[in-house]
């Protein structure tokens, strides 16, 4: 395709639709088509977003360093709080999901032992655990970690199992033929062969973690992007709600881009990559 030839054109092409939507939305808002309460104009949202981003007090230079001041804005603080919860919950999910997934993929015995309970628990959405999470872990970060790790756990687990089970038996034969022991087979054949699937699981997992953190923050904590949206709702600050939503979108995009970069690096050998 022609538009793919230069990176600049490609960029222009991919931002064309968002820009159009914003322009039309701005025009319609200025014509007074929607009340600012229901759908504020993009310019208003942007002002609110900048206000949300920059530090509350002006920089004085005495109390703390410039960097600390720069990071003292509400949006930055909320992002850090949400990011901390996502990463904490995600790491827990990776530890459990990967370990159990590798074991279940490798051994039919372990698979048959755990599979029924997993199939039973898997369809329950993490949101349904909210009341129990609060009962068990109280308020603050612990219930959030619990809910997030629960949400991210299943995609990681299921994809890891599938990855290990889908390893081409021919490669296992080849490795055995070259003298591989069980441990070598696992470490140097099964693990890398399952990597594409595992990475899919991690990517889906972090996506779920991101959804769950927003929900978790609406119930049990008093900072983070999810909490801020809920707070804005109390005051009917539609512009701030949208500013918060866009922040979530940007953070999600950043995380996914990072995952995709890691993905491409680890899968240099894969036929889909060049």
């Amino acid at each position: 395709m022609d538009y793919k030839r230069s990176p600049f054109r490609k960029l222009m092409f991919s931002v064309a639709l968002p820009i159009c939507i914003v322009i039309i939305w701005e025009i319609l808002s200025r014509k007074g088509l929607f009340s600012p309460q229901v759908l504020p104009a993009p310019s208003q949202v942007l002002i609110r977003w900048i206000d949300y981003l920059i530090p509350h007090d002006p920089y004085t230079g005495d109390k703390s360093t410039f960097l600390a001041w720069l990071f003292s804005g509400e949006l930055v603080q909320d992002t850090l709080a949400s990011g901390y919860r996502v990463i904490g919950g995600f790491v827990i999910a990776v530890v459990f999901g990967l370990t159990l997934g590798l074991l279940m993929g490798f051994s039919n015995f372990i698979y048959d032992f755990f599979n029924p309970i997993i199939q039973l628990l898997r369809p329950i959405p993490p949101i349904a655990y909210i009341p129990l999470a609060i009962l068990w872990f109280g308020l603050g970060n612990p219930p959030a970690f619990f809910l997030i790790s629960l949400g991210a756990f299943f995609p990681i687990l299921m994809n890891t199992i599938a990855g290990v089970r889908q390893v081409d038996p021919l490669l296992i034969r080849a490795a055995r033929n070259l003298g591989a022991s069980d441990i070598t087979l696992f470490r140097r054949i099964i693990l890398p062969a399952a990597t594409p699937n595992i990475l899919v699981g991690l990517r889906v997992g972090i996506g779920v973690a991101f959804i769950v953190v927003i929900v978790a923050e609406m119930i049990a904590v008093n900072n983070g992007l999810g909490y801020r949206i809920l707070e804005a709702r109390e005051f009917l600050w539609s512009d701030k709600i949208i500013a918060g939503m866009i922040s979530i979108g940007l953070l999600g995009l950043a995380i996914d881009t990072c995952m995709s970069k890691i993905n491409n690096h680890l899968l240099r050998w894969h036929s889909g990559n060049n």
Binding site: L170, N177, L178, H270
Partner: peptide
Amino acid sequence: PGPDQGMVFQEYALFPWMSVEKNISFG
């Protein structure tokens, strides 16, 4: 199975995540 009877497979069976030299040095 073991390296005393080395097998060359019809479908090559190279390890796709290893470079050419890594494939050769694996054994």
